Computed example of a mutant assay.
Amino acid sequence: MIKSAIVLCGGKSRRMGQDKGLLKINGRPMILHVINSLKNFVDEIIVVLRDEKQKNKYKKVLNNLKSLKIVTDEVKDQGPLMGIFTGLKYVKSDYSLVVPCDSPFINEKFIKNMLNFLSKDLGAEAVVPKHANGKIEPLHALYHKSVRKKIHKKITKNERSVTSFVKEINAIFVSAEELDPSLKSFKNLNTPSQIS
């Protein structure tokens, strides 16, 4: 069974002043932390970037990595829903684990627990972590490639919210705390003070 992962990299962060995936933590770009977490658990990794300019920047960092495909959004500046739509076009698996490039603390327990759902007969279009307070994590989720058609409909209506989309499809919500008791896998770095 092929296991796929899609890593979403948005554009430049206003608060960070530059592209978050390329910001260094412990001397290495954030995206490499994410990819290193995934590489022992999946057969293919699709990195979705905003445009060719961003792709050229990331190629310098990602060029020597195997089992990695770098693609750009089919339509620029449409947000993470477009990133998921684009990534699902290139995957070989029925389900793909989608994660953001600004979550460098994604851990083995989270990945194993999420991928365990692949061995079950789900029939679901998505598996989405949900916190005890009700907050969902649609950018740390598994998606079936069949949702591409539904995403396309949303995008053509200029609807871009991943959270709204997930609530409209056949999604299974699983406890974020069960998937990763530390919750570190869901930590996004959004300000310079979080990195230093």
Rank of each mutant, 00 (worst) to 15 (best):
K3I: 04
R15P: 00
L122I: 14
S193R: 11
K157T: 03
Q194C: 01
A141I: 12
V48W: 13
N26C: 04
V42A: 04
K130T: 07
K92H: 07
D73G: 05
D73S: 12
E159F: 02
P138M: 12
D77M: 11
I25C: 02
I195N: 01
K120Y: 14
P192T: 10
Y95G: 03
K59W: 09
I111Q: 03
P104N: 06
T156Y: 02
L81T: 07
L38P: 03
N107K: 08
T72P: 01
V34F: 04
F110Y: 15
I84A: 08
K150N: 09
D73L: 10
N133K: 14
K130E: 13
D19L: 11
F117I: 02
I155Y: 12
G123R: 13
L118W: 07
V47P: 02
N133C: 13
M16E: 02
N36K: 13
V91H: 00
L65W: 11
E74C: 06
L142Q: 06
P100K: 09
A124I: 13
H131E: 15
L8Q: 01
N63C: 11
L97H: 07
L88D: 07
K76D: 12
S4C: 05
G83Q: 10
M16P: 01
V48M: 09
R15V: 03
G11V: 05
S4M: 05
K55M: 12
E137N: 11
D19W: 11
V71E: 12
V47L: 03
F117L: 09
M30I: 06
K109Y: 12
G11I: 05
A5Q: 07
K12Q: 09
E44S: 13
D19V: 08
N40T: 00
V75W: 02
I6C: 08
M1K: 14
K187E: 13
G21L: 03
H152I: 01
I136D: 05
D19E: 13
E108S: 14
E177C: 05
